[in-house]
């Protein structure tokens, strides 16, 4: 397995993304190619989880769009991600906040981390 790791390390393009975790609110700028035109779409929401390791790491972002919950899974090292902005740091007690899917109203708020 070591050599797989070695190959992945070699191929990761280290970009400067902010260090985010579950509970944070982020905006993902994602390149979309339509025909031969390219535009950038933004997706803002709460990070539910980071999954996997190395080159295959992904993260899930959840937002409420027109009253409907929408989740998108992005591959972290995808060249289609233009940039990631960290909007808010949230305080959560677990690494995967799936409970957020079942919460409604006030329960679905996440406390913001206070910079000390």
């Amino acid at each position: 397995m070591d050599l797989v790791k070695f190959a992945e390390e070699k191929l990761i393009e280290h970009k400067k993304y902010p260090d985010f975790k579950a509970g944070d609110t982020i905006t993902v700028h994602y390149r979309i190619i339509e025909g031969n035109k390219e535009r950038i779409q933004q997706f803002q929401g709460t990070v539910l989880q980071r999954k996997g390791a190395g080159l295959r790491q992904t993260f899930t972002v959840r937002k409420i769009s027109n009253g409907v919950g929408v989740e998108r899974i992005f591959p972290l090292y995808s060249p289609k991600i233009d940039k990631i902005e960290l909007d808010k740091r949230g305080v959560v007690r677990r690494a995967r906040i799936y409970y957020l899917r079942k919460t409604v109203g006030k329960k679905s708020r996440i406390e913001e981390e206070v910079e000390s």
């Binding site: 050599l3 992945e8 190619i33 295959r56 591959p75």
Partner: peptide, 21 residues
């Protein structure tokens, strides 16, 4: 054969591939 992983092609596609020493 070492194992499998996936890498990204130039146009952003995720390609599953086998690592061979």
């Amino acid at each position: 054969k070492i194992g499998m992983t996936s890498i990204y092609s130039a146009d952003g596609k995720n390609v599953a591939c086998t690592v061979i020493h």
